[in-house]
Simulated assay, not measured.
Amino acid sequence: MLKQQTLDQLADMRLKDMLEAYRRQQEQPSILELSFEERFSLLVEYEWRARRNRHLQRLLKQAHLRIPACIEDIDYNCPRNLDRKLIARLSTGEWLQQHQNVLISGPTGVGKTYLSCALGNIACRIGYSTRYYRVSRLLEELVIAKGDGTYSKFLSDLKKIQLLILDDWGLNSFTSAESRELLEVVEDRNQQRSTIIASQLPVDHWNQILTDPTLADAILDRLVHNAYKISIKGESMRKLKAQTPDQSI
């Protein structure tokens, strides 16, 4: 009776993973060799790990990362000017705690998106909310939000995201209207949240695609001066990896 009561109470408290672990313990005669503290510790750890895993899966789902990339799978064998020590430092997540940015530049195919998503994956694993956007898609959603009256809420939701990833930055020059939208986004995040930007253009050339000089200065001031800069070089990794099933870049 006591055993069933315990099972019912665990279910009522929605401790389903602890409940499953408790049932498994009851099926293992050897569990009696452990002390009460050891058995209880195993139950708590099982529930804790399961909750952490569910939380991670929610963060990854909400992040909409373009590639299921992992920092551990980055290929350093091909010469791309990647600083292994810097990547290791970024993988600790300290820059997220300090609300710093990461600016990644390089030609097509060298792994900018992969590195951005790998850092996004790290952020999720640490417990930070993350969201990936292609810049063109973000601008489209901002226009739609203005049209349907949800603009303020959309900006507020963006501000809450602890890591915002903006990919394909500067494929086309930004109009003055688009520059103002981007300024709204980066201003809200300045010194409060982290942003990753991936672009084919070197950071020093970003002012050329922001056609309004005043807005360009304002945007770059909020992005560049509190950022790690990674300039990737070399051959297209897509071509080099085309003959292998490995997804690491």
Rank of each mutant, 00 (worst) to 15 (best):
M1V: 07
Q9M: 10
Y22I: 05
R23Q: 15
R24S: 12
R24W: 01
Q25P: 04
I31F: 12
L32Q: 10
L34H: 11
S35T: 14
E37D: 12
F40C: 03
L42G: 02
Y46H: 11
E47N: 01
R54C: 09
L59Q: 09
R66T: 10
I67H: 02
I71V: 12
Y76D: 09
R84I: 14
A88N: 15
G93C: 09
W95L: 13
H99G: 00
N101R: 06
P107D: 13
K112M: 13
T113S: 15
L119N: 08
L119M: 14
G120I: 14
T130C: 15
T130D: 08
R137T: 15
E140Q: 14
K146S: 15
F154R: 15
D157G: 05
L158G: 04
Q162P: 00
I165C: 11
L166C: 11
W169D: 10
R189H: 02
Q192E: 11
S194L: 04
L201V: 03
H205Q: 13
N207P: 00
I209N: 01
L210S: 03
D217K: 02
I219H: 00
D221W: 07
R222Q: 03
V224R: 07
V224E: 02
N226W: 00
K229C: 09
I230F: 04
T244F: 00
Q247R: 08
S248E: 02
I249V: 09
